[in-house]
Design a protein around this nucleic acid. Structure first.
Length: 550
RNA sequence: GCCCCUGUAGCUCAGUAGGAUAGAGCGUGAGAUUCCUAAUCUCAAGGUCGCAGGUUCGAAUCCUGCCAGGGGCGCCA
């Protein structure tokens, strides 16, 4: 917010001094070193070629001009090859602190989204087994992203797309039926490519209880019963696991629903009208090569079955054209990356701007157990359940680990290490700052101070460098929100919170907040309260709790 | 072979769409608590930013090539 104001001033100044020039893009950033000021711009360096002048000369002219803005700057300097460094009038930061205290939960919100409708689709694991830690990463990331976009002014719907039809579902049903036979004492050979997990036994047991005559029924009917029961049971488990993980969906969308509504045939017909569908070798093909894909793709197999791709086209057709979403964010496993061009191609063919769909590929979670790298597989029952991890380590710690990395960096997950080190999880560092501030309030209340008194506080008493540093950091929060929303990068909030918590802990150790000096106490309480509010708002976006005590 | 991601301190990772002398945490070593929570703080040691070129005032960041690790390239889902 502050940054935007300063940017405007700089552009104004450039225009005043060089009326003939069209300003090109430049940076305003926080320099690494304090002697380079609070903010710095490279505008003179960027324009030196266009203006055919030395960067330092341009910088001097602009700096001279901007020095007169004393309500904004206390000092403006030219440095190095031609940077202009600004020292910000710290009253601006003090006013910002008042704003934080007034706005509370709302501090940091912005209108980047302008009420545009976004559908965030994530996890969407096939209902063939329990959620494992790989899904957990997607769950944490998608949920935080949805919270963030909402905070940034979008209208957000969180959706789980259920692949509840197709080959895998048939295999699932068959797996249950085989286990049921086994339970009844039949000698069976359980196929390798069937689902191996123990939960299949549980479902089989349940099936036999509900349908004592299951094995006497026609094979086809029995399979159907097993399949339906399996999908229902597993989906319930998935929902429960996600709720425990504090992920709540607005919408569960069934792939079958697309067929029930006839949307698959409808959209393929639309594409056919546009000339992007053709028949070859008995199958129907979509001309994705016309949109940069390396080859065309099958939408209906020669067997007459629709492919997963066909459902997906219909799903996105409905999402953008019928349900009216302005944007879509899909979180996919990185192993689906080859799938991106064909889906974007299909959107283009439907005259939906593919830019409206952002597909984030979540890199692998490598499972390390006993020092061994393991690949996770639902079918082979090689995985660590999300539920189990959450039970051992806690929701906050698990979410924080997943959210502290960009989605495109692979994540090595050493289960033993995480369990052992859960007590050292950085999430506690941030939460501890919040708890400490709450505890400071306990103390302040004993001498008769309450949050209402803060608005009367005299913030000009906050003069130490450590106070100013915190004030500046607090003002950065809105920049961080905007940036992480634009980049769909919630992990930036994680690092921001760690920095803010660090500054607070440092301050806390060095200065006494509650003292006999009532005026100073109020000012410092205001600073602490600003930290508390921003930490709480930030953690809320991550889906992490802010405890009053630890 | 082609495509995507990754490579920064012993380990795990930041580095804000190119900036000034490269940053944390863990681990290692030394210290801080009669006082608001020591899940904290202070100090120290630790680097060829995978390698080689290029672009420019300036590169960990952008481009090209190479090396290493992971993933993907079906009428599978």
């Amino acid at each position: 917010m502050l940054r935007r104001k300063i940017r405007e001033e700089i552009i104004e100044s450039l225009k005043r001094n060089y009326p003939h020039v069209e300003p090109s893009s430049f940076e305003i950033e926080k320099p690494k070193r304090p002697e380079f000021g609070d903010l710095s711009t490279n505008i003179a360096l960027v324009h030196q070629n266009i203006l055919k002048a030395k960067a330092r000369d341009i910088a001097e002219i602009l700096a001279n001009d901007l020095r007169s803005k004393t309500e904004l700057f206390t000092k403006v300097e030219v440095a190095g090859p031609g940077f202009i460094n600004f020292w910000i009038n710290s009253d601006l930061y003090r006013n910002n602190l008042k704003e934080i205290i007034t706005k509370r939960d709302h501090y940091g919100r912005c209108d980047l989204g302008q009420g545009k409708k976004v559908l965030v689709e994530f996890v969407s694991a096939n209902p063939t087994g329990p959620l494992h830690i790989g899904h957990g990463r997607g769950a944490a990331y998608g949920d935080a992203l949805a919270r963030l976009l909402k905070f940034a002014g979008f209208e957000v719907v969180k959706e789980y797309y259920i692949n509840d039809r197709g080959t895998q579902m048939e295999i699932l049903g068959a797996s249950v039926l085989y286990r049921a036979k086994e339970l009844r004492g039949e000698k069976i050979v359980f196929p390798e490519d069937y689902y191996q997990g123990d939960y299949i036994y549980d479902i089989a047991r349940e099936a036999l209880k509900l349908y004592p005559d299951l094995l006497e029924k026609e094979e086809k009917e029995a399979l159907e019963i097993c399949k339906e029961l399996a999908i229902k049971t597993i989906l319930e488990d998935i929902k429960r696991d996600l709720e425990i993980f504090r992920v709540h969906y607005d919408s569960w969308y069934s792939e079958r629903e697309l067929y029930r509504k006839g949307l698959v045939e409808e959209v393929i017909e639309v594409l056919k009208q546009k000339g992007y569908i053709y028949e070859e070798d008995g199958a129907l093909w979509f001309k994705s090569s016309a949109f940069g894909d390396e080859k065309d793709r099958v939408v209906r197999k020669s067997s007459g079955e629709w492919t997963y791709f066909a459902s997906d086209i219909a799903y996105h057709y409905e999402k953008f054209l019928l349900r009216g979403f302005d944007f879509g964010v899909n979180l996919w496993g990185a192993d689906h990356h080859g799938y991106v061009p064909r889906l974007k191609g299909a959107l283009s063919a439907l005259e939906i701007n593919p830019e409206r769909l952002r597909i984030l590929l979540i890199q692998m979670v490598n499972l390390i157990e006993g020092g061994q790298l393991k690949s996770m597989s639902t079918r082979r029952a090689e995985y660590v359940e999300l539920k189990e991890l959450v039970r051992d380590v806690g929701v906050d710690a698990v979410r924080f680990i997943f959210l502290s990395r960009s989605q495109d960096a692979p994540l090595d997950f050493d289960v033993d290490l995480v369990k052992k080190q859960s007590a050292e999880n950085p999430v506690y560092y941030v939460q501890y700052a919040h708890a400490r501030i709450s505890s400071v309030w306990e103390k302040a209340k004993t001498i008769g101070l309450s949050p209402e008194d803060l608005l009367k506080s005299n913030l000009s008493l906050l003069q130490e460098e450590e106070s100013l540093e915190i004030l500046r950091k607090l003002a950065e929060f809105s920049d961080i929100i905007e940036l992480s929303a634009l980049q769909l990068a919630p992990y930036r909030i994680v690092y921001y919170l760690l920095e803010l918590a660090g500054l607070f802990h440092e301050y806390y150790n060095k200065f006494k907040i509650v003292s006999s000096d009532k005026e100073l106490t109020l000012a410092r309480l205001a600073l602490a309260e600003g930290c508390r509010i921003v930490i709480k708002n930030g953690l809320e976006l991550l889906g992490v709790e802010s405890p009053e005590r630890m």
